[in-house]
Computed example of a mutant assay.
Amino acid sequence: MDGPGGSGKSTVAREIARRLGLRYLDTGAMYRAVTQVALESRIDIEDHNAVAELAERAVLTVGTSPDNPAIAVNGEAVDDKIRTRAVTNAVSAVAAVPAVRRRLVARQQQIIAEASPVGIVVEGRDIGSVVAPHAPVKVFLTASTEVRALRRSHQLGEKGIDDVARTLAELDRRDVLDSTRAADPLAIPDDAIVLDSTALSVQDVVDEVLRHCERVSARAS
Rank of each mutant, 00 (worst) to 15 (best):
A149N: 01
A182W: 02
A192Y: 11
D162C: 00
Q203N: 14
G128S: 02
A149E: 09
L168F: 08
V130Y: 00
T167R: 05
A169R: 13
A169K: 14
A149K: 08
T180W: 07
L168H: 14
D172A: 14
V131G: 05
S144H: 03
P136T: 11
G157M: 13
L171D: 02
L200S: 14
V164Y: 03
T198G: 07
V147W: 04
G157Q: 13
V205Q: 06
R181D: 04
E208W: 09
A169C: 06
V194K: 11
A183M: 15
V131D: 09
R148M: 06
H134E: 15
R152P: 04
D163A: 15
H154D: 12
A135Y: 07
A132V: 08
D163C: 01
V139Y: 05
A143G: 09
D175G: 08
I127Y: 06
R181Q: 05
I127E: 01
E146L: 08
L141R: 03
L156E: 13
D178M: 06
A135H: 06
A135S: 13
R151F: 09
S144Y: 10
V137A: 08
K138P: 03
D184L: 00
D196C: 11
G128Q: 06
K138I: 08
T145A: 14
T142G: 04
R151E: 01
D191N: 13
F140Q: 00
D191Y: 11
S197G: 12
A143N: 02
A187G: 03
G128Y: 04
H154C: 02
G128W: 00
R151P: 02
R151N: 01
A143D: 10
I193E: 01
T145F: 11
D163Q: 10
E208L: 14
A199D: 15
P185K: 07
G128P: 07
L141G: 03
A135K: 10
L156H: 04
D184S: 15
V176N: 10
R166L: 07
F140P: 03
Q203W: 00
D178P: 11
I188A: 02
T167Y: 07
